[in-house]
Nucleic acid binder design. Structure first.
Lengths: 342, 342
DNA sequence: TTTTAAATCTAAATCGATTTAGTAGATTAG
DNA sequence: CTAATCTACTAAATCGATTTAGATTTAAAA
């Protein structure tokens, strides 16, 4: 019952030619290697007839290439990452690559472990949302001349490829937008991760607040806060303790989720008057009541750029390929939540 | 600069022992193969010192195992699939497996192509959300004794492992719940895919409607409807043409998303009185206004069961392992959207 | 006719681990 | 004192493709 898989050698034996010849022909190098047209035809036809598929593992062992790209995100179940993952997947498959997705949960240990897991699998390239503590791991990957692109954040003191957005300006603009809409007590709810993305968002917020001489009010929720209940409790207390707040900028979509849950449950009336703005747009913010204004990242373009960079870095000689550092602009999607309701 | 990777042979040469011995020791078979304690110690220590990592590709080539599992879902960017993907990922990594995720978009061609892509990569097992037309492909995978579990849906005329939920009862109960809450004109918005999951949901809905002698009113939106705009237009027209409708059951979360967008934009007042119930719960339905009642699937348990089945099927002799067909019960999360507002 | 060149094709090494089938040498048994 | 049995290890084949470095054969040039 168990269908036999054909190997190169099977073809070679059946046709009474050498494995070398078959390999040349099937890898399209027949002409170049001076195999006669007749034989090329014969081998090609036979291979098609028996539906021959080269064993990729054997091929990888020999060539050192696997046609597999690793995409390590913070959390694949987060809408933001899931969306871009899908875009990356589509491009990769189109180009003949497969993608191994994994989530590092923003934990250095997990991130390092994952990279080490892949390093013995001759993965062709990495797209990584790095955690703060894996600078050196990334550096050694690069020293080994493995294609790497960072994504969403980067290391200011390490020259790498990266694709990010203009976080500081985006946060600044978002805050200014709230200010222009008459909000005066604007909070920033952020996480405690010391990523460039987050710290730039904080900077942008502070810059805008200071420019208008308003009060800064920042809540930093630990990313490690495992129980969502606890996360919500922290946000709830923050808003209870700061009744003066009339607007809030959320630095990541998972905080927004928690925040909206809290608002809905505990301060439904307050929410109606609260200015709300979030990073990372998605459909649900659009259909929320009130619809939530959001800083939207150009996911499609980012995915394309990420793949461009990885695929490009794979060309030899890798040393000669200049690093690419791409900063995309975000778009401020203005919706109901950032207008004052009287 | 480029750091050299050590191989088994490097260790063997450095210690003046054979590669065989090193392999035995490092694979933990030292004692069993009668290698002396001293040598075991020496090899283990040395391997640790140089941070030896066996080349997984070479290992795969020899053993035919890759420690890679493929998880093919409908669309990894869909919250439902993204969530379960993450759960699967966690379990897999814990057990030493990696997961290749891919999306088949409910297209037979894409699904087949993907499976064929993986088949030459000695993947150890498959978790698949099958499309309707890949029954035979699944069958041949099984004939080749490759571990396969279907998920979310299955083929009634093919004996396979699968993990699903009681779709018909869930839809029935959901509909009855709406009926019990005084709704009388309940629509079902579903897709045109002829999957067991969907057809069972349709059956459950019809069963409940018929039981009460109400009118069936089903909208089937083509899954292929590429533009979300078009999808929304179809839903909009449906509700315009059926002003009698006072409630709706959405058969999948992406339809619900589209539906809620339409309601918010075009019938905000009507939405307030409309009974809404959806399959596939997520946080956003909870924080939506009104909060959306939902049929919630036990994702964690499902992921665990899926992994159990794949890992188990990998044990030899595979023929002797009985197929597992698991049907989980859903939970009806009752929220605001399924109550009549006066 | 010999030499050179061109056209075709192939043997064998290689990638790095696993595994089968042994081999020495020490020990014990008869 | 020889044979049988252990103990501790290893040579070489293997997985399946790629690739280097030739080997034939034939045709053209000298």
């Amino acid at each position: 019952m168990k269908k036999k898989r054909y190997s190169l050698k099977d073809i070679a034996n059946s046709l009474n030619v050498s494995a070398t010849t078959v390999s040349f022909v099937l890898s399209g190098k027949g002409k170049e290697k001076g195999i006669s047209d007749g034989l090329i035809q014969k081998i090609t036809d036979f291979a098609k007839k028996i539906d021959y598929k080269p064993n990729q593992v054997a091929r990888s062992l020999r060539t050192g290439k696997s046609k597999i790209i690793v995409c390590m995100v913070e959390d694949i179940s987060n809408v933001f990452f899931a969306k871009i993952a899908r875009l990356i997947e589509d491009i990769a498959y189109e180009k003949g690559y497969k993608v191994l997705f994994c989530s590092n949960e923003n934990k250095d240990e997990k991130a390092k472990e994952l990279i080490s897991l892949f390093s013995d699998r001759q993965v062709d390239g990495y797209i990584i949302t790095p955690t703060i503590g894996i600078r050196d791991t990334i550096k050694s990957l690069m020293d080994e001349e493995v294609p790497v692109v960072l994504f969403d954040r980067y290391f200011p003191d390490l020259e790498t490829n990266y694709v990010v957005v203009n976080n500081q300006d985006s946060a600044y603009n978002a805050t200014i937008h709230l200010i222009n809409n008459q909000f005066k007590n604007i909070a920033l709810v952020t996480t405690d991760v010391e990523q460039t993305s987050i710290s730039q968002r904080i900077k942008g917020y502070k810059e805008a607040i200071n420019e208008y001489g308003y009060n800064q009010c920042v809540l930093s929720v630990s990313y490690e806060e495992k129980s969502p209940e606890n996360k919500k409790k922290i946000i709830r207390n923050f808003f209870l303790e700061n009744p003066q707040l009339d607007a809030v900028l959320f630095a990541t979509n998972h905080l927004t989720q928690a925040g909206l849950e809290v608002f809905k449950k505990d301060f439904p009336d307050r929410m109606k008057k609260l200015g709300i703005l979030t990073f990372d747009d998605n459909v649900f913010f659009k259909i929320h009541t009130p619809s939530i204004s959001a800083v939207s990242q150009p996911l499609k373009q980012m995915a394309e750029e990420l793949m461009n960079i990885v695929l490009n870095s794979m060309k030899k000689p890798s040393r000669s390929i200049p690093l690419r550092q791409v900063v995309f602009l975000t778009e401020l999607k203005i919706r109901d939540s950032s207008f004052v309701v009287d």
